[in-house]
Each structure stands twice: as structure tokens, then as C-alpha cells.
Computed example of a mutant assay.
Amino acid sequence: MERKPLKVGEKEARLPLIQGGMGVGISLGGLAGAVAAEGGVGLISTAQIGFREQDFDRDSLGANLRALKKEFDRARAISPQGVIGFNIMVASRCYEAYVKAAVEAGADIIVSGAGLPMDLPKEAACAAREAGRKREPALAPIVSTEKAARVILRYWDKKYSRVPDLLVVEGPLAGGHLGFSGEQLEAFRRESGQGDGDISLAYEEEIQAILQTVRSFEEKYGRKIPVALAGGIDNREKAQKAFSLGADAIQVASRFVTTEECDADIRYKEAYIRAGKEDIVIVKSPVGMPGRAIRNRFMERVMGGEQIPHSPCHKCLHTCNPAKIPYCITDALICAAKGEVEDALLFCGANAWKADRIETVREVIESLL
């Protein structure tokens, strides 16, 4: 396969590959730096990134912002010239503070989902001015539908007279929180072909609709808006399919979990290797969004209606009400990163069960491209 470089703002990645941001503590500086060093785009997830800091329970935001800078510096030491950035969830409390810290740290790109980052251009530009940067990092919203793409493109055009530097299209086979309703996911699942972990024909049509909308804004601005396709891309054939559909790049996450360089505990990686196809399930997150995870003792308890005691609120997401949630997503994801896998929420992509060994980042990239 011809491997065309990927334009990322003022920089260029040698390979058209983005490593998806995985929180809490799964894609930190080690993984992001390794991917960037191989020519891809490495992303650090800011979601509760400071969970290992001593004052995390007392000052979550302070711990997270401090760890954000540490992890970026660690990634940059691994890959001095590579493209390194952050994945920041719109649903995060203090979203603006994370954007500001990412810009100040020196991020090349900010990828933002879990909601539409409507005012990201303003926040990034203000942070860049305060930090003395000539311009803000490349900005890349995550969308899952043509409607979402149209809303964000029109809003940025009308309010900020600009378009995204890159657009990530995250499909129904992705891991973690998903940008679809349960009914939409079930409809896609029933499509022929998706039983084998392939993009359904219905979602292929959605991708084409998104690309058509993107092209209309490319014409208006006279510039290319690269589109990366994400969700279920786990081998060379899936990557080729993504490019044949019109994608300029692929975003891959789950394949990088079972690498030597991934920042997660080895027991988390081994949970992927042990998982069977039937163990990958759609779950309801305590903040109301559907997500995809590996069935384990923790999930059995949650799916059985049990209320899991949790720590004091770490103020991670806008939509969370600590008094009403069945479990704390921060607690569950920290357990995952630490390797306490039976008491954890093990987010994963639809094809995570195919992992059968620990690889290196280079081996994964070579298998994809």
C-alpha cells in the first residue's frame, strides 16, 4: 500500500496513521512517543491523566494538568521531531483548562470528541496567544455522523471563519464511549458483514455523506481537510478498505493496547489477549452513553444492577451525578490501568478479541500499512 504522509497543521506525519487516545492511563507519553517515533501521530489522553499523582484525590485538576505536561515531555523525549498531541473530551469538566495546558505544553494537535468541540478554535487561539505561540495546534473534532460533521463545520465556518485541520470519523466498531444511541448500534450490528467486525454497508453510506459534506467546505476554503477513519481497523485489509472509502488516514487504538510500549499494566493487556469474541459487549456508562468493553466480574455486577461503592467525586465529566451513578467511571478505569482487571471497566474496540500476543508498536504499524 502506498503510504502518503499526513498533513497535521504545520507539521507532517510520515504515515497516515493516528494512534487513538485512550484514557485513563492507557495512552500516555510512552505509547504516544513510540507511535510518533515510527512516523504516525501519537495521542496522549488527558482523561484523569494525573491518577498516579500523590494529590490526585485532593486536587484532581491540579494533578491532571501537572501530569499532562510530564507525559508530553516524556513523549517528546522519545520522538523529538514526531507529531504528538492530546485527545481531550468535550465532556470533561474544566475542558478549557485542558486545552490551555495542551497548547502551553507544545502539542502539535488536539483531537476532541465525546461531544462537539464547538468553541475549540477560540480556546486554542487564546491559549496560543498567552503562551506566545505563533499559532494554535492543529484542531481535529471527532464526529460519528454526517449531521455532527455538518454542525461543527458550519459553526466553525460561521463563527470562526475556519475549518478543522483534520476530521476524525469514529464508527460504531470503536472502543470506549461511542457517538451513537443503543438503537443505532443495534441497527449497524444487524447489517450483514459487521458480524465479522467489518464496517456495515449502512455506515459506509454515512461515511460517504460525511466526505461529501467535507468536500463542500474544502471547495469553499480552497484547501484540503484530511479525514481519518476510526473504529474496527485492526489489519491491512481493513486499512485498505478505509482508504478505498476515501479516508486520508486511519485512527487505530485497540491494536496498540497489546504492545510493549503501551502505558497500561501488563494484566490489562493480557485481558485483551484472553478475551473471546463473545466477551466484547456494549455497556451503559454511568454518564448515560453506550460504550464497548470486555465482560468481566465487574461488568457482571453492573449488568446485574448492583450499585458499586465509589470514591469521592473526582469531577471528571459534566454529565455525572455522583449521587445517582451505579459506579464511578474514574475508579473503574483507574483499576483497569493499574491491572486490577476484575474490578475494572475494560474499554476496547469491537475486534480487540483478535489480539493473541504482545507486539511492538513497529510491528503493529507494519501489519496495518
Rank of each mutant, 00 (worst) to 15 (best):
135 R>G: 02
137 P>I: 12
99 V>I: 15
125 A>V: 12
128 A>R: 04
97 A>W: 01
126 C>P: 00
128 A>E: 03
136 E>C: 03
105 A>H: 15
139 L>Q: 03
123 E>P: 00
100 K>S: 13
122 K>W: 10
109 I>H: 09
98 Y>V: 03
110 I>P: 01
134 K>V: 01
128 A>F: 02
141 P>W: 10
121 P>L: 11
116 L>H: 03
114 A>C: 07
125 A>I: 08
97 A>D: 09
135 R>E: 05
130 E>P: 00
122 K>H: 08
95 Y>T: 10
107 A>I: 01
120 L>P: 09
98 Y>T: 05
113 G>S: 12
137 P>F: 09
109 I>Q: 09
105 A>W: 08
104 E>A: 15
103 V>S: 11
136 E>V: 01
111 V>E: 06
95 Y>G: 13
115 G>W: 06
129 R>W: 05
110 I>H: 07
140 A>K: 04
116 L>E: 05
111 V>N: 12
138 A>H: 04
135 R>T: 10
97 A>N: 05
135 R>L: 03
103 V>K: 12
108 D>L: 09
100 K>Y: 14
101 A>F: 06
122 K>F: 08
127 A>R: 00
107 A>R: 05
104 E>M: 15
107 A>E: 02
100 K>R: 15
132 G>S: 07
103 V>T: 08
102 A>L: 06
127 A>D: 02
132 G>I: 04
124 A>T: 08
137 P>D: 09
106 G>N: 09
112 S>E: 08
131 A>D: 02
117 P>L: 14
122 K>R: 10
100 K>N: 14
138 A>G: 05
107 A>L: 03
117 P>D: 13
111 V>I: 09
134 K>M: 00
125 A>R: 12
100 K>P: 02
99 V>H: 07
136 E>Q: 13
141 P>F: 06
134 K>C: 01
106 G>R: 04
122 K>M: 13
112 S>D: 02
122 K>Y: 11
136 E>S: 08
116 L>Y: 12
108 D>T: 05
132 G>H: 02
138 A>F: 03
116 L>R: 09
135 R>Q: 10
101 A>L: 01
123 E>S: 06
131 A>E: 03
125 A>W: 08
131 A>V: 01
116 L>I: 12
119 D>P: 00
107 A>T: 03
123 E>F: 09
99 V>T: 07
127 A>I: 04
98 Y>D: 09
137 P>A: 11
120 L>G: 15
118 M>C: 04
100 K>M: 12
100 K>L: 14
102 A>I: 04
112 S>L: 11
113 G>T: 04
99 V>R: 08
141 P>I: 06
95 Y>R: 13
112 S>I: 15
112 S>T: 10
136 E>T: 01
108 D>K: 14
117 P>C: 14
133 R>Q: 05
97 A>I: 00
129 R>Q: 11
